[in-house]
Design a protein around this nucleic acid. Sequence first.
DNA 1: ACCTGAACACCGTTCAAGT
DNA 2: ACCTGAACACCGTTCAAGT
Lengths: 262, 262
Amino acid sequence: MDDEREHDPDSPEGRGASAAVLPAGPPDTGRRGLDRRRVLGAAVEYIDQHGLGALTMRRLGAHLGVEAMALYRYVPGRENLLDGVVETVIDELYGDPDVHMQAQHGWQDFLQRLAHGVRRIALAHPEVFPLIATRPPAAPWLRPPLRSLRWLETFLDALLAAGFSDEAAVAAYRAYSSFLLGHLLLEVSHRGVKISPEDEPEGGAADATADLEQHPTIDRLEPLLSRDESAAEFEESLETLIERLGRVLEESSARSARRSTS
Amino acid sequence: MDDEREHDPDSPEGRGASAAVLPAGPPDTGRRGLDRRRVLGAAVEYIDQHGLGALTMRRLGAHLGVEAMALYRYVPGRENLLDGVVETVIDELYGDPDVHMQAQHGWQDFLQRLAHGVRRIALAHPEVFPLIATRPPAAPWLRPPLRSLRWLETFLDALLAAGFSDEAAVAAYRAYSSFLLGHLLLEVSHRGVKISPEDEPEGGAADATADLEQHPTIDRLEPLLSRDESAAEFEESLETLIERLGRVLEESSARSARRSTS
DNA sequence: ACCTGAACACCGTTCAAGT
DNA sequence: ACCTGAACACCGTTCAAGT
């Protein structure tokens, strides 16, 4: 019922509030001085630990040592809190040193690093990722999982600077989004499946495993099917996508070169 | 509050209870003879009309002209009901004449028709698709959105018959799943965004639109970005995927041919 | 056999009241 | 300024009771 779990002392943010007071005594979540950032951070933490379905205004309040009603001072309601959770997790990308300074090694390198950064976030917050994937975006031109104006701007600028046309850059954003969404959602849901059913007493969830002998091919390939090749598949598909975009770029460069010499 | 909406008289099921008594007075959903299939059908209908968030045991009961508690005779609980909803919607594929008889025109044609069938379902039930995408699968080798033993078996058999190796067929299933998931979730969420915010009084949801001038590239490309090219992108990515799989097949054929002549 | 009423524990959210 | 208590309408779910 009550969860007094001692949790990771240095949170995702990894900042030390400029090394000041810090009572350091009680096992609270950083108490004294509730604000929106801390509420959202606690929500992410709570979802990571207990799952999305367990997040409740009342339980989140308890987790913060406060009554649920106190949260409404910092968050207009539950829906907005979930939006804030999505934003908070995506914002972790800003602090990822492996993703930054895209200038150096060309657009391919940037797309590679960005993709890996998003993947790290998805794997770090598997319970949050479905939210990132399915919450209605704030604007029609923002697509999951890169639902941030700043990253979209950076993405487009990187491709435009590399010589992509406006149309090609926008098309690339969509292809890239759909690639990340599909792969990461699949990967995250695949990992989740082993922990998700709570007990499976014995023959309880016989749904899939029972009718298995009626499907000889699945039965025969089961070892192959349950193998987790997500990481390798991610790399390969990302490589393929980048190559495809590279061909688009070459074609449009060739076209404009031809145009300027004719 | 109360929804007395006169709704499509012939439901998905399209059966007329063998033309018997039918009081014809009340706007019920085909009453008399509640069973699991009807409950799940009504749930799908309700989600399609009112959105996933509006589905409640009590409201679904009311929609069926019954108290909520009566549903527990046909459905063990809400979670199981949602699983049933996913299954019901996926099962619509079995009735799609454009998808069947994959034998005739080769595996490429089969993958094409199957993909379009799944896309039709996603667009027909945009409120259900996120559920299809994110519910934990019943088995680790079942991946969304093709979460059905029967379709997985059919899929693998089709590729194996065409000469794919076991490994290649399984890899193809994963690539295909991730492609469908990414594209369709993006497309569905893109369509949903225009109806999802209820009113937007005036400057209410200024989140994205306000900071737009701080992002000149997005601002400049906004018309391009909000254009909906989903259909064309779907076709093109599907084509690319099938070509890629075709190359895999050729390579493995060539390898085994070389092996048998050496 | 099938449905309902009443009840329980738990939600999100509002608001006057406390400190 | 910030939090709480009490209250409201609504959940999912159980179970004895009705027909």
